[in-house]
Amino acid sequence: MSAKNLFLPAAFVRAPLQNGVGRYVCQLQRITFKFCKSHGGSRGLRDFIEQNLVEFAKENPGVVVYMKPRRHRSPVIVGEYLNGDRVWMSVHNKTHDEITKWVEVMRTQQGDVSSSRLRKYQYTDHPSIQGPWTPFTFKIPELNTAQLPDPKFGANNRLPQSATEELRLMFEKQKLNVKEEELKVAE
């Protein structure tokens, strides 16, 4: 039943430092763009840097952007997060649009979310508010003092009304001196 994998550990949902409870802080700390100025594989990344990078840096003042132009090296984006995760991603031969989307993913993640398998999709500190279930939660209190086996608790009481019973009730109702609440239903 347990799926163990050395390279894909199982983890519960966590958010670092109660993020979101008070104020929300963007979790991406810094991005590093490593690219080659002339090689073809970095074309997408070079286009991204020329067109979108300044806007990105302005819109996210909490993120530090580094650029590392390195000759004869394939293009790479490295994102570092506030909880210490480091996400390395190769963007060799990726188009400008794809790189924009991947940078957006890096920006909105709170760490390396895809490196661990989430065991549950919820996390609470207070799993029970009205008190955890016990076998006595929904039991009738009369059971405490009852002498079991007792037909009051044991006999079947869920049958539909029989025709005889209906006739009897009709007879009782049409009597003049009987009120509706006093009618006792048998079985």
């Binding site: 059971l143 079991l148 007792d150 608790f153 006999a155 079947n156 049958l159």
Partner: peptide, 15 residues
Amino acid sequence: VMQNVTNQIRQIRLV
């Protein structure tokens, strides 16, 4: 055995 019993299961068929 009877001292431990705390609950009764309802019968299914009417007696």
